[in-house]
């Protein structure tokens, strides 16, 4: 347990490492989800992108949080491709912009980072909630984090609330008809399938929670 309830550079690095592990493990499962309603590449693309991020980690260790997140955004934009590359890439670049020069983030600053990330994804992809996209995991997560944080919950309970809401959001994509992205071409046939982008988004949030809260008393 750390003395102060903050998220530091070490935890950002651990987050990225755990995210790379999680996306590697989920590679085939994400691709299967994408095969059902998309083009069967989401798992490969996310894995390729986060292995690229993993390879950058040694060079990031001396940087502030904003610089780390900016490097992650650029790496994702340059290696993921598809729609996920620009979406997550823009998300990380926006997160970088609000954490520029920071060595550690208060629970409130973590909330701002998550909000900025969501705003970047929405602006780039122009998706609204209910379109069966990663926004359907990220939006409730950001809202749940905010609710928990403003009522005085610490960092870990707030992140746990975000993960729970994201996972609930992922499940909620199953009955949705896609109106954005490649799944939208299927029309009603997209109903009944879990959205791969929402799924990878929840994995990223889960990795963040694990990185920060492992070994902490919630």
């Amino acid at each position: 347990m750390t003395d102060r309830d903050t998220l530091g550079r070490k935890e950002i690095a651990a987050w990225l490492e755990l995210a790379a592990d999680a996306l590697q493990a989920a590679r085939d499962a994400l691709t299967e989800l994408d095969a059902a309603i998309g083009d069967a590449d989401h798992g490969f693309n996310m894995d390729r992108g986060f292995q690229k991020v993993r390879s950058l980690l040694p060079t990031l260790s001396q940087q502030d949080i904003g610089s780390m997140l900016k490097s992650v955004g650029m790496a994702l934009i340059g290696s993921v491709g598809g729609a996920a590359g620009p979406l997550y890439g823009t998300g990380f670049l926006r997160a970088a912009a609000v954490t520029s020069g920071q060595q550690e983030l208060s629970p409130e600053a973590v909330g701002s980072m998550l909000k900025a990330m969501l705003a970047g994804i929405v602006e780039r992809g122009r998706a609204t909630p209910g379109a069966k996209t990663m926004v359907d995991a990220m939006t409730p997560a950001v809202e749940a984090y905010d609710r928990a944080q403003t009522t005085g919950a610490g960092l870990c309970p707030a992140l746990q609330a975000a993960v729970d809401a994201a996972e609930e959001g992922v499940r909620a994509t199953i009955p949705m008809q896609a109106t954005k992205g490649r799944a939208s071409y299927l029309g009603e046939r997209s109903i009944g399938h879990q959205d791969p982008g929402a799924t990878s988004c929840a994995l990223l949030l889960k990795a963040l929670h694990s990185a920060v809260c492992r070994g902490r008393n919630a």
């Binding site: 590449d41 340059g78 290696s79 993921v80 491709g81 590359g85």
Partner: peptide
């Protein structure tokens, strides 16, 4: 050209 069926990247 991107990867198979995957958009290329901005760079």
């Amino acid at each position: 050209p991107g990867e198979v069926f995957t958009s290329p990247t901005p760079d």
